[in-house]
């Protein structure tokens, strides 16, 4: 499968946003598959091959705590925001809001120019 320049731009754009979305959802404990379902339900599509390593990387950075739980003969690793993770989520949320506020008028202006 070839990756077009447009796909690369999309991937770059999504990379940071996905980390933010994962951190936001992990205010509550989730295991890998349930987190993916939550993201899908929120309208965010993500491959499992991308999501699971992303969770691990966030955990390695100390942003997530994790624990194994056993239920109905199945073991699952649950993740939840750590204290550091909560702090980073707050910072990232502010950054996202600031970017979004700055970007929205630009995109609206662009759409208006195209419409003319």
């Amino acid at each position: 499968m070839t990756t077009t320049p447009s796909d690369k731009l999309k991937l770059e754009l999504r990379r940071g946003v996905l980390a933010l979305a994962v951190l936001a959802l992990l205010k509550e404990p989730h295991y890998g598959y349930s987190l993916r379902q939550q993201l899908q339900d929120s309208g965010i599509e993500i491959d499992e091959g991308t999501l699971y390593p992303l969770i691990r990387r966030l955990a390695d950075q100390g942003l997530l705590d994790s624990e194994w739980r056993h239920a109905s003969g199945r073991e699952r690793r649950y993740y939840q925001l750590s204290a550091l993770g909560r702090e980073r989520l707050e910072q990232l949320t502010q950054e996202w809001s600031s970017l979004n506020n700055a970007l929205s008028p630009l995109l609206t202006l662009n759409n208006a120019l195209e419409g003319e």
Binding site: Y33, Q37, E48, R74, R76, R77
Partner: peptide
Amino acid sequence: DIGRELEANIMDKVDA
């Protein structure tokens, strides 16, 4: 560790 977690995730999907 990763193998164990990946297997758990795949089996969750299989179950679903």
